[in-house]
Design a protein around this nucleic acid. Sequence first.
RNA 1: GGGCGUUUAGCUCAGUUGGCUAGAGCACUGCCCUUACAAGGCAGGGGUCGGGGGUUCGAGUCCCUCAACGCCCACCA
Length: 842
Amino acid sequence: MTRNIPEKPGLEGLEEKWDSRWESDGTFRFDRSKTRDEIFAIDTPPPTVSGSLHMGSVFGYVQTDSVARYRRMSGKEVFYPMGWDDNGLPTERRVQNFFGVRCDPSLPYDPDFIPPPEPPEPPISISRRNFIALCHGLTEEDEKVFEHLWRTLGLSVDWTQSYATIDDHSQRTSQKAFLANLERGEAYTQDAPVLWDVDFKTAVAQAELEDRERPGTYHRVAFHRPDGEKLFIETTRPELVCSCVALVAHPDDDRYQGLFGSTVTSPLFGVELPVVAHELAEPDKGSGIAMICTWGDTTDVTWWRELDLPTRAVIKQNGCFQTEVPEWIESEAGRAVYEQIAGLYPNQARKKMAELLEESGDLQGELKQVSHPVKFYEKGDRPLEIVSSRQWYIRNGGREDDLRKKLLELGERLDWVPDFMGVRYKHWVEGLNGDWLISRQRFFGVPIPVWYHLDDEGIPDYDRVIIPDEASLPVDPTSQAPPGFSEEQRGQRGGFIGDRDIMDTWATSSLTPQIAGHWDDDPDLFARVFPMDIRPQGPEIIRTWLFSTLLRSYYEHDQLPWGHATINGWILDPDRKKMSKSIGNVVTPIPLIEEYGSEAVRYWACNGRPGTDTAVDFGVMKIGRRLAVKILNASRFALGFGDDADPELITEPIDRSMLAGLSDVVDRATAAFEKFDYARALEVAEASFWTWTDDYLELVKGRAYGEGGDTASAHAALQLSLSVYLRLFAPFLPFVTEEVWSWWREGSVHRAPWPSPDEFAGLTGDARVLAVTSEVLTAVRRAKSDARTSMRTGVSSLQVTASRKDIEALQAAERDLLEAARGSAVAYDDGEFAVAVVLEDA
RNA sequence: GGGCGUUUAGCUCAGUUGGCUAGAGCACUGCCCUUACAAGGCAGGGGUCGGGGGUUCGAGUCCCUCAACGCCCACCA
């Protein structure tokens, strides 16, 4: 074909040019006529669109894209969808801040509502429906920003296969799977103590917790024995004395042997409490005896459950002490004390209680300041409280050993890349201590698709769940009536109420293979892509996304959702610190792409080893940019001779020697990619490429220009090797390789076959020829460099001492060597390798 | 408290099953406008492979131990 090689090729504008061409040509469109064994399916992580764009967003996605492109070139039809995770609390928070609004479900819908141009302070309250409309609107905008970034970076996604976790199809899939869990008994509802965020007013799950080190104060508080003796406990939460249900010590603790089975009374409140024994009580912690409250921490919950203690909860869902005096405080004095802390927040009540205990003489010694871990919701700002509440759960093995074992076994069958990541999964599953809490008392999410019967007194019967017809999904039980009822019966005796909760984000995103593969509405497609080949994701969401996806797949399909889990590393800022918004060291990708180009940013990302933490490194991006420019220039040279030369013409030993080395490079890059080690594949290709430009191109140059030797062999070898290099680099540098490919080839390099050993069949020679010739050339260059003279300076005498084998190799390429060295003759000597060079006078 | 990972040139990192004088790029030094490329090319200096033991003919590579850093988990009285 005619070649159209620009005079001064450059990188500018390649991203836009090729993104729109790929889009119009449908280059990455998934061909669903292929069968499962011909398909490589990727369970793409749906990014949280309300989150900020940062380099972490780029890193893993580019790595996965390189793998996708490799698989596509090696003959697989790649199923590469893109999803948006827009459902859930992060979006609500962003909408609240962006518009200055709060959701108040008690307000009526205002069809004319338009958010103020500037977020008002204080925020205005709007109805649930208005709030959700704002969420939808804003996420659509956020998604556009992400899509633009992905396109600029050259992700080879099939954009016709995209979804959002809040769209109708995702909601239907999510509700359908939930109802299937419910029918099989894998989902259940229960009124129990849950970890509760008082600001967001929602329950949170074990996987969303994080410990933060917070200051606390030990109070040494006296309880009273019947004989008047004081029994001291140490607590950081004296405000919970009123909710105390027992004291506990270790069964083997000699100090308290005589007390087990007896009772004490609480200070100030005078409530009679048993002293009990439990192994979890630690003799060397505090005084060795602790108060059990309902509930100060998760240990309290364990004790309360295992020792079958009464419930005396005082902290309500708003985070405050209940206003009415609890009925278990019977004494007048006690009731008067409680009134002083009624309605307070825990930290206020704590101070008050310390004062009151001090006054009554029940606080002994100085307060002791300590720093201790406190449980927080990972997105929250205040310590979690434990409150009693009705919630929905999915069984996850936290309470059933058989299920836990099964899930551990599935984790072992999964191929983890890198393999040590599997340990994180194992530890998480082994450490689960309760079922998966999936209900959230929030607004922007997939509704829990059930209603409850109301009995004759209008009390909900949570054992009589009403479920929707599958055809009606997705449903919103707060605005739709269940089958067999009419809207008028909502809230009426003998009628129904809808569940007002939504599901946690993970309860929907745990179904990404089913959503992307259309399990719900396209079983033919689903059978072609499921189970998927890879799940690429970050290490921090193994306990959430990976685990929950595996769990749902086990329930629904009794198999692993994918063959491989490829886990990327953390992104660190240029100073190797973890990037976080609060430190303010977040590096955003757009300016970097503008400065260095997409190829450079991709090169940086693909240099990060699988699973290895990687710092943002502008130096590496510069190298990537240089590599891309080099490809343009070297291609201009290799293709600048106008002819299409037949590989059959490659006869010169040094050409065949070069191809021998390249053939080996192809083998190594292929092997690396097969193991998902894109970084090694890049490294191997790159190292070889620089040798090709530095040495081979110099050695072949004269012959290529027709200054002696087999010109056609040079041209053919240049073209074949360039074709191979372009394809080796295509997964990493998709724009520049496509650009060069377009100069002389039809179609996209990204649909061209991955280089195979067959292409070199009968064309390779002795790899030593190029290697040893390059060594001599380097020696000549060194001589010229030492003499501070130009590389064009002629060589009047060249004396090479080498082994017989190397001399033979050198003789095979002598003409090319002399041309590159600017010499006229070489003299050889048998012996240890040495090169003597005499230069012509300048 | 437990687990995982990292520790190789000033910086960022490679070093696959132990094997010839430990590699790359950046940075640094010197040279070169050479007809693919001067926002380039060529050449060069630079490391007791975190510390300490051990196995081996031979260890950056295997074992033990210690340390620093990072991450994950843990019942916070």
